[in-house]
Design a protein around this nucleic acid. Structure first.
Lengths: 353, 353
DNA sequence: CGCATTAGCGCTACACCAGGT
DNA sequence: CACCTGGTGTAGCGCTAATGC
């Protein structure tokens, strides 16, 4: 925080300068330029605005924050901004924040709860109006994180969770369970009977819900979950889980369900490395429906989440007192990575059994 | 900026509280907790830290910024955070900022210079130590943007440009021209003789350089640029340009060079819609080598840019006075979207001519 | 040398006051 | 004269950095 002399304001006009230039009081200038509901005569408004324009004035938001005790800031916490899932959410957050005249600060947790807690503490120092917790939430809340969340509430900030509803937190609801169930039903309906699940470590609400929903739907449709392979909830994790799955043996015509598209993409990569074919040989379905999934050949079956909208709603939830959660529509997109399984294969299979 | 009474600090400890709790002066507490090189006896350090911990103290960065005239903030301006190119850069920025104890604010311009200027003005209000301009820069600087850049310099902030070197700005250099030239040479070397370029509107430094470099390399290798189709520098623009290109007719064995992978991905989508095949039928090369390009089948030939590193270096350039630009290594990755063109096709072609 | 004291950063919010009904 | 309307004056937000002891 060492500051060289010339770093200390040089050529940067302050409100005092503007007021002086306009020949009005500091208070009036403040009211014209930076909010307040109080009325100011049009003639004064003009003069102040002209002066501000002439001097290239910009409000010092830090000073504003110090004086008012709150800032027009939204803090966004994601696991990894390079991940298309979070990037899309961030896009919606940026759009909503911009519309509302808010600035966005972003930080990445790398999926480490310890880091998440530390970052929350730092972010709290910005007195953000809202904090959006997009990094994966645990079923059993991590104590230090919980403490920070409470502290943010204490200073008047709002904490928004994505996905699972949570007590004490506003949430943008994502029906992971329902979407996964629909997917399971649809794929069973297409004729799949055996599935292998590429899952994440237990404890993440999102993944637990997806796994449970899929299992429910797939078995309800007459299918059976043969095995579950767990690895990190990332692309690399997907490759790893798939390696494991292949080592354990996967018969042609088996469906592989990855708990996210990122995991699925990693798995597809691995599967191809091993010389297997995506589609009729090994079918694959993901979740999230990120853009890259559509570029895959054959295109990946997935459950579409309007992620940009999720981010947008999260900001609304943070800054609009009237906001109420409205369920976001998920959509199952069956594509060619899960073709109707070959009848012959199914019959042979029955015979073999 | 209206603040309800309970938004006004409640339960949030300040430095005064900590100092009181620890039984030391405000100044000492400040020195212990928030930097400064001045020495404080270990016994005092202990007491202050214990008090801070007990009260859950976090420095109010806004107050810090007001008092010191600078904040530990990096502002990042991108065209579109959902775009993998920018998402990867952002990832590197986040990592570097975190390492250095900086916070990152992010804003999206949507490729609109007008918006860029407006956002820069707002961001300036945060007194960021550095501003990273990742949104596409124009060959002819947009006046209002230039004014804001000057203002930021005036207040002691550093403005970092990505890509093309620029007078007066520190830049993380990306050798678009050289990379594109290598690509052109390599593809001519593989045997391609005719190329169609899917380009962006003139005026963007990045795209102009890539187009020029490719043209240089490809013709040097014995190839010829048949046509250039211009559309927006986005995925949708790629689809549009490809539509145009297909309408104008593309012979099998022709190489299509898209100025970015995003453009290429849009083009591939379009090409498939039209029933054409990627590879031997229509070959395609992109630029950037974003992860999604590797998931394409056949995988997309592209020029790899270490985007995460670009973001990382940008932050270093912003906060490290000693930083000097070191060229980042680009790498041409020839993949199956540009197979060696069929000899027969080439011969037939020669006969036909 | 190592601590405490304090001015002041830019701004907002409140208290205040002048003039017209 | 009390009341509104629309301006001014200024305390103080939490912190840093220069000065004092």
């Amino acid at each position: 925080m060492q500051v060289s002399p010339q770093q200390r304001r040089y050529g940067t006009a302050t409100l005092v300068d503007v007021a002086q230039e306009a020949g009005v009081s500091l208070a009036t200038a403040s009211r014209v330029l930076n909010g307040s509901t109080r009325k100011v005569a049009e003639s004064y408004r003009e003069r102040v605005r002209a002066a501000a324009d002439k001097l290239g004035y910009t409000v010092n938001v830090s000073a504003q924050a110090v004086a008012s005790g709150a800032s027009a800031l939204i803090a966004l916490l994601v696991a990894d901004i390079a991940d298309p899932y979070f990037a899309q959410v961030a896009s919606g957050v940026a759009r909503a924040a911009d519309e509302a005249g808010f600035l966005v600060t972003i930080a990445t947790t790398g999926r480490d709860p310890q880091r998440e807690a530390a970052l929350l503490r730092v972010l709290r120092g910005q007195l953000p109006r809202g904090v959006i917790l997009a990094a994966s939430r645990m079923a059993v809340p991590f104590e230090p994180v919980q403490l920070e969340v409470d502290a943010i509430h204490g200073m008047g900030g709002r904490v928004i969770a994505l996905g699972p509803g949570a007590a004490e937190l506003r949430s943008v609801l994502i029906d992971n369970w329902g979407g996964a169930r629909q997917l399971g039903l649809a794929l069973a309906g297409r004729g799949y009977r055996r599935a292998v699940v590429l899952a994440a470590p237990r404890g993440l609400i999102t993944t637990d819900q997806r796994q449970a929903g899929f299992t429910d739907g797939f078995t309800a449709g007459g299918g059976r979950i043969e095995r579950v392979h767990r690895a990190a909830f990332t692309r690399e994790g997907g490759a790893e889980a798939m390696r494991e799955a292949l080592a354990a043996g996967i018969e042609p015509g088996t469906l592989v369900f990855a708990l996210s598209d990122a995991v699925a993409l990693g798995a597809v990569h691995e599967l191809r490395e091993e010389g297997r074919q995506l589609g009729a040989d090994i079918a694959m379905a993901g979740f999230d429906d990120i853009p890259a999934s559509g570029d895959l050949t054959p295109a990946l079956t997935s459950v579409h989440i309007p992620l940009e909208e999720v981010g947008y709603q999260a900001v609304r939830a943070a800054i609009d007192p009237e906001w109420t959660p409205s369920p976001l529509a998920l959509e199952v997109n069956l594509r060619d990575s899960t073709p109707p399984p070959d009848r012959v294969t199914v019959d042979l299979d029955a015979v073999r059994a």
